[in-house]
Simulated assay, not measured.
Amino acid sequence: MAYQNILVPVDGSDTSFAAVKQAAELAKVFGSKITVVQVLALDPYIAAEYITAAQTNDLIERARSSIEGTLQDAKAKFSAEGLNVETRLLEGQMIHQEIINAAKEINADLIVIGSHGRTGLKKFFLGSVAQKILGETSVPVLVVRQ
């Protein structure tokens, strides 16, 4: 199976950049288009005015700037491998759902995501974006651990 559209969610961690490396290798083999995304998680209490009235919020704008930097770092890693990528900053309240929506939007046939491999109480309290994506999408998911 050749993967034509690969979605790579990042969060700036070493684990997510391990997924970038794996996605780059796959893209070179299959000639795939790569889309890199990161989600700005909007807390409805903090971001109420931002969401409803399109007002600015310093905290959100700083987070947006940081995410843009992470997306550019990922893009540079792909560029170093000779690959051009599209980057997208997504916004929403549920990170995994925004990633699934993006996969549908670009017709992704593979999601390559890093996982920190948390277990036990850490997984229970912190959750797992990768685990939630696995449970809610029909798109194949490659989970990369560092």
Rank of each mutant, 00 (worst) to 15 (best):
Y3S: 07
Y3F: 15
Q4W: 06
Q4A: 13
N5P: 10
N5H: 15
N5G: 07
I6T: 11
G12D: 06
D14S: 09
T15E: 08
T15M: 02
S16I: 06
S16Y: 05
F17V: 02
A18G: 01
A18M: 01
A19M: 04
V20Q: 02
V20T: 12
Q22V: 10
A24C: 03
L26V: 05
A27E: 11
K28R: 15
K28T: 04
K33L: 02
I34S: 00
V36H: 07
V37Y: 01
L42Q: 11
L42V: 12
D43N: 14
P44G: 01
P44Q: 05
A48S: 13
A48N: 11
E49A: 14
Y50A: 11
I51C: 06
T52W: 12
Q55M: 13
T56S: 15
T56C: 03
E61H: 01
S65F: 09
S66A: 15
S66D: 14
S66F: 08
I67N: 09
E68P: 01
G69Q: 08
T70F: 04
A74I: 10
A74W: 08
K75S: 15
K75E: 14
K75I: 00
A80I: 02
N84P: 12
V85Y: 09
R88Y: 09
L90N: 05
G92T: 04
M94C: 00
E98S: 09
I99D: 01
I99P: 00
A103Q: 05
A103W: 09
N107G: 13
D109W: 15
L110N: 11
V112N: 10
I113T: 10
S115D: 11
R118E: 07
R118V: 03
F124Q: 13
L126N: 10
G127T: 04
G127L: 06
G127V: 03
S128R: 01
S128Y: 03
A130S: 14
G135T: 10
T137V: 12
L142P: 04
V144S: 06
